[in-house]
């Protein structure tokens, strides 16, 4: 593969101190599959299948989906037992109720309780409830997380700062097919007086993947 580096001028803002070399994202060598993906995009645009604007709009729409959407689903489930029941019965319909349509995959909510903790992975690639939570964090796609969380999940959780006692059963969900999993964390004690918006603000991305509690 051609690895022709360009030595561009460092004229970007660089007013913070750090000892390492400045990041140069544009200088990295593309992998085979990155080049394939760029070539495919360019061909689809050249052939008029999609326009560059449509590609940009799609990326912009994807990037507008954030874990705050999932947090609203969790908070509603905490305050509304009927909604909670609907969420476990049909995740897609429950998410759509709050204005978050999920297409092409089936959303399944799994609930953390005092006895059971759930954590989600995709060992084969990077399946993630993107329609609800947005793009997954980089570590979720890393080979280390994907390989280790099914092999030594408690050690992985410990590295995230989550200690589980041995009387809590751990369930690792490997998203190998058409199902996307949303962990519904336990509602923290002492939040009885918080309203739904304040509760949603407590719900983090990592708690909905299951590597953290709230």
């Amino acid at each position: 593969m051609n690895s022709d580096h360009h030595h561009h001028d460092h004229d970007h803002d660089h007013d913070h101190d750090h000892p390492h070399a400045p990041p140069q994202p544009d200088d990295k060598v593309h992998s085979y599959y990155q080049i394939l993906s760029i070539a495919l995009k360019e061909l689809l645009i050249e052939k008029g299948v999609v326009t560059a604007a449509q590609v940009r709009q799609f990326i912009e729409k994807r990037d507008s989906i954030t874990p705050a959407n999932g947090a609203k689903v969790v908070a509603r489930a905490w305050v509304d037992p009927a909604y909670r029941a609907r969420l476990f019965e049909d995740g897609n319909a429950a998410a759509a109720e709050l204005g978050f349509p999920i297409t092409g995959t089936k959303l399944v909510a799994v609930e953390n309780t005092p006895d059971t903790h759930n954590v989600v992975v995709c060992t084969l690639c990077s399946c993630y409830p993107r329609d609800l939570l947005g793009l997954p964090p980089a570590w979720y796609k890393s080979r280390a997380y994907r390989a280790r969380v099914v092999r030594e999940p408690r050690a992985v959780l410990r590295e995230f700062g989550t200690e589980l006692s041995d009387d809590v059963a751990l369930r690792v969900h490997d998203s190998t097919a058409d199902i996307r999993f949303l962990v519904v964390p336990q509602r923290p004690a002492g939040t009885e007086n918080l309203d739904e918006d304040a509760l949603a603000a407590l719900v983090t991305r990592d708690s909905m993947i299951g590597v953290a509690r709230i």
Binding site: V150, R151, E152, P153, R154, A155, D166, D167, V168, A169, L170, R171, V172, H173, D174, S175, T176, A177, D178, I179
Partner: peptide, 28 residues
């Protein structure tokens, strides 16, 4: 498509954790 539950101790004989721990995967 089914959700299939495997005991972690069945998958990994040297598993470090609770015997209650499970791995679940979606299998056709």
């Amino acid at each position: 498509l089914y959700k299939v539950r495997f005991r972690a101790t069945d998958l990994w004989p040297d598993y470090q954790g609770s015997p209650k721990d499970v791995i679940e995967a979606d299998i056709y």
